[in-house]
């Protein structure tokens, strides 16, 4: 099975405080720790497991600047067979559809049975996988939390629905799936593993190499544009307690008593 997994490098929100920069036109990128989008890690692991079961190849693709190379290497170290790096300034400011168009062009240069994305990334939009499927006129399922081969040319998949129920379906290949966290336990990759793939050649692609028309890309073509980042004028918010740990605990005990929190 030929599998393409779309991955994204994102600021690690567990490690970073996100601050505004340039009057809200961007976030402060200096000293930001980046990592692989959490959902994508599960997608790559799912692809590797499926390949190990039925044979084939896993290719990871990312759209991003030079730094995004690191993400591809990490996924190669996990066990992906090859990487593709789309890097072109003309893509800056693309909306979800713009990025889906780029991925469509990437997919058309290969012959993939299965395309995976994470269910969502750092912007919480969860849109690229579904758009890609629609552009390519392939069947799609979002929030997939189970995949198994089901005869020739089909998969049996589970998708998460509200309340944590699981909807089981059979799906024809080729198809596009967006992967939900928890579908597996992504394997750990250490520095050693990443060093081993340091010299693997990763083809670099730009809009021209993908046969994309520059006018249909980037901020100019985007129908959804970000105007600025801001920190909302928050409501009253929580009453924040102050003091040393002992004092904080003592105050909390009083509040817990008053609210019925100690039984």
């Amino acid at each position: 099975m030929e599998i393409l997994v779309c991955v994204k490098q994102v600021p690690d929100t567990a490690e970073n405080d996100i601050e505004l920069a340039k009057g809200g036109r961007d976030i402060e990128r200096e000293d930001l720790v980046y990592s692989v989008n959490e959902w994508d890690n599960y997608a790559v692991e799912a692809a590797i497991q499926l390949r190990d079961q039925v044979g084939g190849r896993v290719t990871v693709v990312t759209i991003g600047g030079e730094e995004a190379d690191e993400v591809l290497r990490r996924q190669l170290a996990m066990g992906a067979d090859g990487g593709l790096h789309v890097n072109d300034e003309a893509l800056e400011g693309s909306d979800g559809l713009g990025l889906a168009r780029v991925l469509e062009a990437v997919a058309q240069q290969g012959s993939y049975d299965l395309i995976l994305t994470g269910a969502q990334a750092d912007d919480g939009a969860g849109q690229v996988g579904g758009m890609l499927a629609a552009l390519m006129d392939l069947p799609f399922a979002a929030l997939v939390n189970h995949i198994e081969p089901s005869g020739a040319g089909a998969l049996r998949i589970g998708r998460e629905v509200a309340g944590g129920d699981q909807e089981i379906s059979e799906m024809d290949l080729p198809c596009v799936l967006s992967i939900q966290t928890g579908i597996n336990q992504p394997r750990y990759v250490g520095i050693r593993g990443i060093r081993k793939v340091a010299s693997v050649e990763i083809p670099q692609l730009d809009a021209a190499a993908l046969g994309l028309d520059a006018a249909s890309l980037g901020a100019g073509a985007a129908r959804l544009r970000r105007l600025d980042y801001f920190v909302p004028q928050s409501g009253p918010g929580a009453r924040m307690l102050a003091g040393k740990p002992d004092q904080l605990a003592a105050q909390l005990v009083e509040i817990l008593k008053a609210k019925g929190g100690i039984r």
């Binding site: 579904g130 758009m131 799609f140």
Partner: peptide
């Protein structure tokens, strides 16, 4: 914006030729 919308909406916007604003 919940589980069903994440399944339906992005592709629907493409099929309608419409823009998409999520969440």
């Amino acid at each position: 914006h919940e589980h069903f919308a994440m399944d339906l909406a992005p592709g629907l916007s493409v099929k309608l030729g419409a823009a998409y604003l999520p969440d």
